[in-house]
């Protein structure tokens, strides 16, 4: 607000919240502790508080935090079991890691002035590529060349199959792109829109509308934070199902 008063006009910097800042100054090299590193670390802390400290009493009748931990466990466990079947449960810790990281990073990112690691393509691309590589490797290891049957739609008429195969291959390789951009795009867009509303709040005449807008967007973002984590996780399960059972 201070610099707006000085420049005397509307200044929008909706993307500034995403800038990577070194915490202790200096240049950003690969190991520099940055705000991204800090908030990723805080998401680890949140996960430990919820799942480890929360369940430390091992109560038959759960406490509040233990019941949230059990809820998260049951939610992801059931998702993996329903979509991938029993064989998919080997990957449950991996999928749980993805889900817990995304959901905690998203929710921590909703704290005003915080930083959201999942709004960066660098993060979501790595997450999505990890899933893509896992799925591809698991698919070939489990099924061998039969994994290529995923691209050969045997239920379609024979002349159509080569065309469909090309489409299937393209869609397979587009998966990590859509998978990563969906998450980062949703989170980034929401945060940017809130920031734009915040910029308008500097004008007295529209500030009530702007504040209402911030509130509404914030509510929506709470929803989006969870839904995007859920979508990312469920898509991971769906892709993994393809690797485990490649036949449609």
């Amino acid at each position: 607000m201070a610099d707006k008063a000085e420049t005397g006009g509307l200044v929008f910097h909706p993307m500034d919240q995403f800038i990577i800042q070194p915490i202790f100054g200096g240049d950003v090299t690969w190991y520099t502790p940055t705000n991204a590193a800090l908030w990723m670390g805080l998401s680890i802390v949140a996960i430990i508080l919820l799942l480890v400290v929360g369940s430390s009493k091992r109560g038959i009748v759960p406490t509040r935090s233990q019941s949230i931990a059990e809820l998260a466990y049951g939610f992801v466990y059931k998702m993996v079991e329903d979509i991938c079947g029993k064989e998919g449960l080997k990957f449950f810790p991996y999928i749980m890691t993805l889900f817990m990281f995304i959901v905690c990073a998203n929710f921590l990112g909703l704290i005003p002035t915080s930083f959201t690691p999942t709004s960066h393509f660098a993060v979501t691309v790595v997450l999505a590529l990890a899933v893509f590589i896992t799925v591809t490797v698991v698919g070939f290891v489990k099924n061998g060349a039969a994994f290529l049957g995923l691209f050969w739609v045997s239920s379609a008429p024979l002349p159509l199959r080569p065309v469909l195969a090309i489409i299937e291959v393209i869609s397979y390789f587009v998966r990590p792109v859509s998978h990563s951009i969906r998450l980062a795009g949703n989170v980034m867009a929401g945060h940017a829109v809130i920031k734009v509303f915040a910029g308008f709040a500097a004008i007295a005449a529209v500030s009530p509308v702007a504040v209402l807008g911030i509130t509404a967007m914030y509510g929506l973002e709470v929803l989006v934070s969870f839904i995007q984590a859920y979508v990312f996780t469920i898509l991971t399960c769906v892709y993994l199902k393809d690797a485990l059972h490649p036949h449609h």
């Binding site: 090299t29 690969w30 520099t32 940055t34 991204a36 590193a37 990723m40 993060v123 790595v126 990890a130």
Partner: peptide, 13 residues
């Protein structure tokens, strides 16, 4: 900044 983020992300995961 990608290298930095990817490094910390892998550590976190």
């Amino acid at each position: 900044t990608w290298g930095n983020q990817i490094f910390w992300l892998i550590v976190t995961l």
